[in-house]
Design a protein around this nucleic acid. Sequence first.
DNA 1: CTAGGCTATGTTACATTATAACAACCGCTA
DNA 2: TAGCGGTTGTTATAATGTAACATAGCCTAG
Lengths: 167, 167
Amino acid sequence: MTATASSISTASTAFSQHDHNHCIKSAITQAQNLCKERGVRLTRVRQRVLELVWQSHQPLGAYTLLSLLAEEGFNSAPPTIYRALEFLQNEGLIHKLASVNAYTGCTNPGNPHEGHFFLCLSCNQALELDTTTLQNSLQNSAENHGFAIAQQTIEITGYCAQCQQSA
Amino acid sequence: MTATASSISTASTAFSQHDHNHCIKSAITQAQNLCKERGVRLTRVRQRVLELVWQSHQPLGAYTLLSLLAEEGFNSAPPTIYRALEFLQNEGLIHKLASVNAYTGCTNPGNPHEGHFFLCLSCNQALELDTTTLQNSLQNSAENHGFAIAQQTIEITGYCAQCQQSA
DNA sequence: CTAGGCTATGTTACATTATAACAACCGCTA
DNA sequence: TAGCGGTTGTTATAATGTAACATAGCCTAG
């Protein structure tokens, strides 16, 4: 398995039991490799933000991340975090969830794509989907309207299986 | 044609030529009827906000709407607009576009549904889709994960046919 | 027809999210 | 090692959204 291949299994994580340490390590390794390949710099702040975002599958807000950085002695003014987030988004390493103003790690950064998510309203976890069908359906619809897709925001809130059982 | 039926043809508006005055009038009439049926009050501010939202197919921000209200002598503190928007959203008369923090009129308010949009990055217009296929695809995916869908945010940015020609 | 309760609105203050603008620093390479 | 481009520091402010309580308007029961 190479680092740039899809090494974090989509749709098997987030809502189910898994070795999350593996998620984190894998995400960082992939990020390092991708940045090297592309000749961009995964600086200390940037990498640390990526790690923080990956601490769980629960998307975190910019200011939450900022205060985590601050605790570790990093600069704590807003531009610090927004710059890091912007870089990570540009490199496809994280996704922004517009409907909740929060950021989450991308599970397949080597393969540029749009983020499609299930967000659990109870446990706040985000599951990134690999929705080829959805994609095709959207593409068809776009073609019918002569619309050229640039970016997609697909965020489905609801309740994950676990939380439904608990309730 | 009754007012509560889908009387604003989805997907034929926004990006194509149409009698927009009809959109506005129809939207207001439908809103009035729906509110009456439901026993909720479409007050002056609320109706005016709905009209303003419907002035075009370009989604408007809360503060833009607020300043339009202010020009007409309405109160101009933020809660005024956010309350009106909240009411209209609850009644399914408008949708919020989370990815751009803006609000747009719902083209089919009698039929409770989620908003699925194409947003043109050039002319800023929003086209609300009626995407049954997409819906099914999502529903399947949700079922596979045991996920119970509550709310959907589907916002696809790109370029509409007209703007592609102009460029 | 009016008292009281509910809904809606007014008002002030503030919370949250995000960006602009310019200065200082750092790492590379010519 | 001078300089250039990219990164970070710093200050200030913009944009978006809410909390909390006071006032006003509307509706119905008595």
